[in-house]
Design a protein around this nucleic acid. Structure first.
Length: 115
DNA sequence: CCGATGACAAGCA
DNA sequence: ATGCTTGCCATCG
């Protein structure tokens, strides 16, 4: 199969994002890979955007691009909200860039593989 | 069908 | 490190 079913994709993405532990973060690419579509990192972003209209709680602030940059902060109510949420969880953000990105980075493939 | 766009990523100068 | 180009692929006009 491996064709893209929108609902399946969205559910898979939500499932991953919801499991991101507090004080950690991951990238769109990681999630895309984790759900089996390594080339659909952009669609992950689209899902995040749509999540704003969703009733499900989604810690989208824990999802950044591969550089640890808060690329989607503009899509929050206020541009500082994303950073505030992250800092409230113990993540340091400097100039839209997460500090200690390598430490903060959470790899779903590695952390959830045995589930 | 074609071209442009997009919460991305990797490569290169 | 900054900035541009290419690859990727769904979505839109």
């Amino acid at each position: 199969m491996l064709q893209l079913d929108k609902e399946t994709f969205i559910q898979a993405v939500y499932d991953i994002v919801i499991r991101i532990p507090q004080g950690r973060a991951t990238s769109y690419g990681m999630i895309a890979k984790a759900v089996g579509f390594p080339n659909h990192s952009r669609l992950v972003g689209k899902v995040m955007k749509e999540s704003g209209s969703s009733a499900i709680k989604l810690p989208a602030h824990r999802v950044v691009n591969s550089s640890g940059k808060l690329s989607g902060k503009e899509y929050f109510g206020d541009t500082r909200e994303m950073q505030q949420l992250l800092e409230a969880e113990g993540i340091t953000v400097e100039n839209n860039q997460i500090k200690n990105w390598k430490k903060v980075l959470w790899d779903p493939l590695k952390e959830i593989s045995l589930e």
